[in-house]
């Protein structure tokens, strides 16, 4: 027989989240769904249009372009980032002199104000006087107009994302690695397993929850990528992500529709599709990691 405390405490413990979410999370979601089936312009609500906004969306090339961009940048930013984070974390997870300093050093990007990221990286990727082109010039290459092509803009944006978040993921991995029992490594060392071998057969399986966590989180964050490309694309119409929408993400497309073109109904439909796409991706992610266990 469970005690009263055992029976009801769990619900009490998770209740605060659900109470606050119900007010500040659920309502916006439902409201957005409602708006998405209406004609809704700057002057407010028009008539009910059913799924028209969604149908229109499926034939909107700008939407598919944004989808493709988002996924492309997601891959370009997430894969190297998580790999580097894993390597960094394992390097930091050992006895070294000045360890605290080293650990804090790689975490510096996390504690940078987003304004600072924007201002520094827009200088680095400046076409005429930027450092990236300056270095390319020293190496004898022609300067690159970073905004003009998909590959170059994606590279620049992925660099910003990677710079900002690698240390963050390394910290999560490090925290998880610290929870791996030491005796596992000691036993492996006695058996003569190399460091690399230990990394793949002990560390990675033991921090699997953390890896799964970061993969899902990076996917979610990547699907909602907004700040970095917006900072990168300067000028008055930055929300379009370049002259040919080279680096417009789904979130930017949604924001453009809702707040720049004043088509709030259409923007809400985009929001819901993003929501569904992320959910789908997360489920797929989850199943893949499950199965490979």
């Amino acid at each position: 027989m469970k005690t009263f405390s055992e029976r009801f405490s769990p619900y009490l413990f998770v209740a605060p989240f659900f109470v606050i979410f119900a007010v500040f999370g659920l309502f916006p979601l439902v409201y957005t769904a409602w708006v998405s089936v209406h004609e809704w312009d700057i002057a407010g609500q028009g008539g009910f249009v059913g799924l028209d906004n969604y149908v229109m969306l499926f034939s909107d090339p700008d939407f598919w372009n944004a989808t493709c961009n988002t996924i492309g940048m997601l891959v370009l930013a997430t894969v190297p980032q998580l790999f580097c984070a894993l390597v960094l974390a394992s390097l930091l997870n050992q006895k070294l002199r000045g360890l605290t300093f080293l650990r804090m050093g790689v975490l510096l990007p996390i504690v940078t104000s987003v304004a600072a990221v924007g201002i520094v990286f827009s200088q680095i990727f400046d076409r005429d006087a930027g450092m990236a082109n300056g270095l390319l010039g020293l190496a004898g290459f022609a300067p690159i107009d970073w905004h003009a092509d998909k590959w170059s803009s994606w590279t620049a944006i992925a660099t910003m994302v990677n710079w900002r978040w690698t240390g963050y993921n390394a910290l999560i991995y490090l925290a998880a690695m610290q929870a791996v029992p030491r005796d596992l490594y000691e036993a492996a060392t006695v058996d003569g397993a190399s460091k690399v071998r230990q990394f793949f057969s002990i560390t990675v399986p033991n921090i699997r929850p953390a890896i799964l966590f970061t993969v899902i989180m990076s996917t979610i964050a990547g699907m909602q990528l907004f700040t970095e490309p917006l900072i990168f694309g300067q000028g008055g119409f930055a929300i379009s992500g370049g002259s040919l929408r080279q680096f417009q993400t789904l979130s930017m497309f949604m924001f453009e529709k809702a707040f720049r073109d004043f088509d709030y109904g259409y923007g809400s439909a985009v929001a819901w599709l993003i929501f569904l796409m992320i959910t789908l991706l997360a489920v797929v992610n989850f199943l893949i990691t499950r199965r490979s266990r």
Binding site: S122, D126, R127, D128, A129, Q234, G235, G236
Partner: peptide, 9 residues
């Protein structure tokens, strides 16, 4: 681009 740093410069 108008309002970009290189425009200012």
């Amino acid at each position: 681009d108008q309002w970009s740093p290189q425009w200012n410069a």
